[in-house]
Design a binder for these strands. Sequence first.
DNA 1: TTGCACTGGATTGCATACAATCGAGTGCAT
DNA 2: ATGCACTCGATTGTATGCAATCCAGTGCAA
Lengths: 236, 236
Amino acid sequence: MSEAATAMPILTDSEIYDSIVAAILDHRLAPGTKLGEEKLGRAFGVSRTRIRQVLVRLAAEQIVVITHNRGACIASPTPQEAHEVFSARLLIEPPLIKAFVSAADTPRLHALQHTLHQEEQALHDGDWRAAVRLSGDFHLQIAEGAHNATLEKILRELVSRTSLIIMAYDTPGKARRESHTCGCDEHEALFEAILARNAREASRLMKRHLQHLLDQISFKAREEQQTDLEFLFARS
Amino acid sequence: MSEAATAMPILTDSEIYDSIVAAILDHRLAPGTKLGEEKLGRAFGVSRTRIRQVLVRLAAEQIVVITHNRGACIASPTPQEAHEVFSARLLIEPPLIKAFVSAADTPRLHALQHTLHQEEQALHDGDWRAAVRLSGDFHLQIAEGAHNATLEKILRELVSRTSLIIMAYDTPGKARRESHTCGCDEHEALFEAILARNAREASRLMKRHLQHLLDQISFKAREEQQTDLEFLFARS
DNA sequence: TTGCACTGGATTGCATACAATCGAGTGCAT
DNA sequence: ATGCACTCGATTGTATGCAATCCAGTGCAA
């Protein structure tokens, strides 16, 4: 809360923006969280004016929702939105990985491999937050290597929103170890296909991977709450 | 300049945003145009504070560029960006029109047909601005009918940027009547395919249409200026 | 004429002040 | 006890003011 109020000389708007997005990618900032302007201002050591601009930008990217006279909250994607985000990713990422396969040079491949290893390591260490973040990085690095800044930016937004979706609808507790956090296997398979310069296979695997991610999300999380309410109604 | 300074009681941020975007879609606001805060504030009858928020949003959508201590200008897409925008549209719009073919109900088809007729009429009347705007509307209506708000928003941004690209790189003067403004024929063909519920054909035609749009853009516009400079250098 | 330092006006960056709005909590009436 | 009107603290919306920055135009020197 009073995270960085001291001894941080100057903080650019983008840095504030990045901090907030990073917190979301880390699953440290959950959907629905209130983002009070003054509170954030204190956290970053700047005034409301600048916070507000960052919030407006985040709202434009549908990462937060600003309600008139009621301020900003982290967006809570509806199941409908979740499906939209995934169908957008299904459209965009397979071609992106194809472009990556064609264009990626050796250092980029090494960087990707490094991320993959870090992800495995994080998972092995049980560092769940790092694993989630690195999993997103894996996808973003592929987008970076495709040399299309426009699509890359679009995917950035979609990945952030995916993070919110997972927070909102992940199957709670239970089989977390063998669920999406360990799409690591699939990331590994993707990397193999990339190394082999097999664009078609990489594209196919990407589709499957995203489909699996979507399948692992249970929209019952909210529905359960609804049924709970129904129970209450029935009893009263 | 002093457009609406009087007698406009209250103007919401979205309305200001919409006005500016509309001006771009109309080709009334060219790439590179300076957007002074106070000047805009006077035009809309509000203070810089609110203008600034709108500009931040437009910047997030890459429609304007904000340079530190130098304010906001309408973005001037580079040829690279232009290619990116078109490859993004080529990715997104064919599936979108397929979804439209599956999902569109009668009123929506009528609305689309109405837009098409208006476009033809505007072209016939020589109302060039209306024709350009309606041409964009045609694409956006298809996106609306595909029931994916996320992709629709993405396409909105891409269409705005396409408008800037055309302004920046359109083959000047000359064969304007038979160029993109009269992609009307192609829009008509698209509409036919939609009416026939022929999703595959519609998708194919959409790809061709976008490809034609891209082909009609001449990136020589800027290059000519450069060669002009080279001539000057050679002579001096 | 060309190059460079400087200055004044204009514009932006940012914080703050004030008005408007919300909603949790209180108290009263039923 | 329940419902309802009201008030007050907290938070947001918006305008304004001031400092920082830029840049066009001027003048001076080479």
